[in-house]
Every structure is written in structure tokens, then in C-alpha cells.
């Protein structure tokens, strides 16, 4: 069967598409693809294809952070993207995806949220980061996270006229402070790999997602998969993620 073959290949350090274990597929970043959004980007890594659109709106801040703008990240596994997806509210995986991407943006302090406060305790800007999937061939988190930061970097805030949003006039860019890059490292037997396809994901033992800042600091992590990791493995996976994040960062 195909799975067994993919597994056998990976265990011997090879991949069906001929890539090295630590090699990304082709990465294409397109920005400003959605004119009607305040910011947008479409990222393709191999056959995985994701659009992120940013909408800005006015809202009331959370009471515990009355002087900060708000970030809301959503993801839908659109049935358009894969034969296994069904219409309906986001499931576990879509929710995890949105939360991991959100965490990378939030914890890196990507956006200076205090600059998005209009009236403390009353009115702040809300950024809606919507992850829209077009085609699923694995590694959704890295692709979504990259599309999210690429879209945020292009986002322009609409002008306020008498307290109302005028979306025809976009001016200032979002106050960007840091850019997190998320790299997922997969593990199978004693091998580590980057950018798994959907087929490869099905045979992985475990995955570690690592969000890395400009200076190599780590700002978010998440382990998934049903097998455990040793301390030594964890540290090697982190090192690999940091190394690969530098390559990705150059593309932005």
C-alpha cells in the first residue's frame, strides 16, 4: 500500500517527490490578492494553497486590557479544499490551526496593540485574521502562519471620519513590531522532516510547531501527534525550526 511505501521511504531518509528531509517545497507568496480586504496574502507551498484576508473593525476592548486593540483569528476547513472536509462549523483541527497561528502573532507582539486603541476602555481597532483554505496538501500551519504575517504586513487601516470607518480611504499601515515565522518539524522513527505533504503527515509519529522571532527567540510552540518526544529530540527539532525560519524570512 502507498502509506507503507511512503513510510519506508521516509525511514530511509527519502521522499516520494525527491526532496531532502529538511527541504521546503516551492514557496509562492502573493500579496494584495483581495482588493476589498484591508490586507491579504495568498501563500502556496507545493500544492497547499491558503488565502488570508484581514478586515479591520471597531470594537470594545477586553476589560482586562482596556488600552489594547484586539486580534481575532479564524480558520475554516473549507470543503472546497479537500475531499475529506465537510461543510459545517470549525472542528478540532481548524480550531487548533487558528489558535496556533493566533498565538504566534500575539506572543511575538507582532502588532503594537496599544497603538490600536482609540478611547481606552471604550473603543479600539479589531483585526480579523481569516484563514481561508483553497487546497490542502499538508503543512497547513506553516502556510497559514506565513500568509497571516504577509497579509498583516500589507494591511492598511481605514480612515475614520466622524467616528465612522471609511474603507475607501486606507492610509497608515498597521504598527508592526515583530514578524514571527512558524516552522513545523515532523518526526518519524529517528528522522526529522520539514514541510510534510498530506500523505507524509499521515505516517508521522509527531510534530512540533515552533514560532521564531527575528532574533531567533521562540515565541510559541505546540506539539501534536500521538507519540512522545525526548528532551534531545525536542532540542534538535527546535534547532532545525530556527534554521529553516531564516530561509523563510528572506522571502517576505
Amino acid at each position: 500500500m502507498r502509506h507503507d511505501y511512503v513510510l519506508k521511504l521516509l525511514e530511509s531518509g527519502e521522499r516520494l517527490d525527491g526532496r531532502k528531509l529538511d527541504e521546503f517545497r516551492d514557496i509562492k507568496i502573493e500579496v494584495d490578492t483581495i482588493e476589498r480586504a484591508e490586507g491579504s496574502a495568498r501563500v502556496k507551498i507545493g500544492k497547499t494553497d491558503i488565502i488570508v484576508g484581514i478586515k479591520m473593525d471597531l470594537g470594545e476592548p477586553f476589560p482586562d486590557v482596556p488600552n489594547q486593540g484586539m486580534l481575532r483569528t479564524g480558520a475554516e476547513f473549507s470543503p472546497i479544499a479537500s475531499p475529506e472536509f465537510n461543510p459545517g462549523p470549525p472542528g478540532e483541527d481548524a480550531t487548533e490551526l487558528a489558535r496556533v497561528v493566533d498565538r504566534g502573532i500575539r506572543e511575538s507582539e507582532c502588532i503594537d496593540l496599544e497603538k490600536l486603541c482609540l478611547k481606552p476602555g471604550e473603543q479600539v481597532w479589531t483585526m480579523f485574521v481569516d484563514i481561508h483554505m483553497m487546497n490542502h496538501d499538508g503543512n497547513l500551519i506553516d502556510v497559514s502562519a506565513l500568509a497571516a504575517v504577509a497579509a498583516l504586513m500589507r494591511t492598511k487601516m481605514p480612515e475614520l471620519e466622524d467616528g465612522k470607518i471609511n474603507r475607501e480611504k486606507l492610509k497608515e499601515k498597521l504598527p508592526i513590531k515583530h514578524i514571527p515565522i512558524t516552522v513545523t518539524v515532523g518526526k518519524i522513527s529517528d528522522k526529522f522532516l520539514i514541510d510534510p505533504t498530506k500523505e507524509e503527515e499521515q505516517v508521522l509519529d509527531s510534530k512540533l510547531m515552533v514560532a521564531v522571532m527575528e532574533d531567533g527567540k521562540i515565541c510559541a510552540m505546540q506539539k501534536s501527534g500521538d507519540q512522545g518526544l525526548s528532551e534531545e529530540e525536542t532540542s534538535r527539532m527546535i534547532d532545525l525550526a530556527i534554521k529553516k525560519s531564516k530561509e523563510i524570512r528572506k522571502l517576505l
Binding site: K55, P79, P87, R167
Partner: peptide
């Protein structure tokens, strides 16, 4: 058949769900 609008497809964000 399912017709769906992306949240960011118009000026005022659309909440996901039909």
C-alpha cells in the same frame, strides 16, 4: 451545492457560517 462568501470578501466582515 454550497455557495459561501469568504469573511473578507466584502467591506463589513461576514461572520463564517451559512
Amino acid at each position: 451545492c454550497r455557495y459561501n462568501m469568504a469573511p473578507f470578501s466584502v467591506d463589513e466582515r461576514i461572520r463564517p457560517g451559512s
